Computed example of a mutant assay.
Amino acid sequence: MSGAVGVGSRHDSGAGGGGRDTGGGRGDGAGDDAGALLRARLRRADEQIETPPGLWDRVKGPGTGPVPWAVAPPRRRPYAVVLAVAAAVAAVLLGVWWLVRPGPVAVRPSGPPRTVKIDVYNSERACRTGRSLECALRLARDPRTAYAARGNAAGRVWHGDEVTARCVVTDGLLIRDEAGVTSTRWYLVTSGQGVRGWLPGVRTRNTREVPECADDMP
Results as ranks from 00 to 15, higher is better:
A15T: 12
A36V: 09
R26S: 13
V5P: 09
Q48M: 07
R44D: 12
S13W: 13
V92L: 05
G29W: 08
Q48E: 12
A15Y: 09
L94S: 05
A88L: 09
A4E: 15
G54V: 00
V96Y: 01
T64P: 02
R44C: 06
L55D: 02
V96P: 00
G16S: 15
G54S: 02
G61D: 00
V59E: 03
G18D: 15
L38S: 12
L42P: 01
G17S: 15
P66C: 04
P66I: 01
A36Y: 03
G61M: 00
G16H: 15
W98I: 04
V92T: 07
D46E: 13
A4V: 13
L99P: 00
I49T: 08
V85I: 08
W69K: 11
R41Y: 07
P66Y: 06
V100K: 01
A91V: 03
L42W: 04
L38C: 08
A84S: 06
P78R: 03
V67R: 07
W69N: 13
G54E: 02
V96D: 02
A34H: 08
D21E: 14
R77W: 08
A70P: 04
V82G: 05
P66Q: 07
R76G: 06
A45E: 10
G25R: 05
V96C: 01
G35S: 11
R76Q: 10
P78W: 04
G63A: 01
T22I: 14
V59L: 07
L99K: 05
G25C: 03
S9P: 03
G6V: 15
G29L: 13
R41K: 11
P52K: 02
L42E: 09
G16F: 15
V59Y: 02
R77S: 10
R43K: 12
A30F: 09
L38K: 10
W69Q: 14
A30I: 09
A70H: 13
A90N: 03
G61N: 01
P62A: 03
G6S: 15
S13K: 14
A70K: 10
D32L: 11
A87Q: 01
